[in-house]
Design a binder for these strands. Structure first.
Lengths: 213, 213
DNA sequence: ATTACTAATCATCGAGTAG
DNA sequence: TCTACTCGATGATTAGTAA
């Protein structure tokens, strides 16, 4: 964790950075040997990539390493920044129409009506989150929210989820997240109304979602 | 570090929270014995306080522990949010006049002239930072800045500090921070001129400081 | 139920050194 | 120089258990 963070501080999130095991060891207060060992561990866990072609090795944080750091960052955001609401900005994207399928299930609909006080429009507004806001999304993933139980219907299983009340441009809505997601950048927004029409938003528009925790 | 973070997540920053060694162990993925040991270590380092009066121990993060967490948080802020300039907004507050005393010392004045290119007005403008901007302040605390050496004069010691060039409403100035700052929410701004008069600001006015890293 | 001691086990570290 | 191996020492962790 500490090693990964240090690589990130060196700029390893953007590109490969030269980082000898001696340098790393000094920075972390451990020996060259231990630093080398730590690099190997990170490699083994696929948290970083390495280019050992030239004299000095160059390292770069891999996708899995970025996730790890974001989760850690999200913890600190929770510690220091958390109020009762959080604002996440995302860009409207056209989903795969999957959302509508799930929204049509009675097993979900009934729970939404009971727990949120409205029966959602059969379709979701997908917001693609990027950059710094991804860490805020991590906070959501870590929060409990309002639980939506999984159920069985039509011979298949529908997984559990959690929802958070929210507003989007003043309109009441909710965000829904699968109960166990760790790597997503999509927020699914449900509402009583067809949000796209109601708010006049089209794909690519950035909108700020104000979420209640 | 991990243990301390977990206590913070449980609300240990604000007040004592009940946290048995078994609970902590499970949360951290270690045994009850190790969790107990970690609590003892944190206590020994004065990072937390403990109340062992009742059955379950209750722990609370001490001042030193808060600092530790803030430093760690600042690292993650640097990783995910950092640019080359940072804008921090604070409200003008009347200091205790202490700043003026320090600014009068030749040991500091000479360094300012040499390293900043101006000799500051004998007095500081204090900005009280709150809310989300506090996290930006933590970035500053973690950055190196321009070092100001400590010295001895008049039979006492004047500690080291670090400064950052900045502008306030277009006027060149600098922020000064003690080299090992404790938990602070005050930014001390120095400038060639008497900023209050120059900018016509009075106590309570919010001003945005644009700081160079 | 707790917390935390002791003793055994296991992982981590660094010195020396090879490639 | 560099990385990274072996291996003995030093830490950390845990099971058992006392208070």
């Amino acid at each position: 964790m500490d090693t990964l963070k240090h690589i990130a501080l060196r700029g390893g999130l953007k590109d490969f950075v030269a980082l000898s095991s001696r340098e790393l060891g000094q920075a972390l207060g451990v020996s060259q040997q231990s630093a080398s060992q730590r690099i190997l561990e990170l490699l083994n866990d696929a948290l970083i990539q390495r280019d050992l072609a030239s004299r000095k090795q160059r390292v770069k944080i891999a996708a899995k390493g970025l996730e790890t750091l974001q989760r850690e960052y999200a913890d600190y955001l929770r510690v220091f920044e958390l109020r009762d609401r959080i604002s996440i900005t995302g860009r409207t994207t056209s989903g795969l129409g999957e959302g509508a399928f799930y929204m049509r299930q009675r097993g979900y609909k009934d729970q939404f009506r009971k727990k949120l006080g409205f029966e959602p429009y059969e379709g979701t507004l997908n917001l693609k989150v990027s950059g710094a806001d991804l860490s805020k999304l991590m906070i959501l993933i870590g929060e409990k929210g309002i639980p939506i139980d999984g159920f069985e219907a039509a011979g298949r299983t529908f997984g559990g989820a959690k929802v958070f009340r929210a507003t989007l441009k003043g309109v009441d809505c909710a965000v829904i997240l699968p109960i166990r997601t760790h790597h997503t950048d999509i927020l699914e927004v449900i509402s009583k109304e067809f949000l796209r029409n109601r708010l006049g938003i089209t794909d690519g528009d950035p909108v700020a979602l104000d979420i209640e925790l």
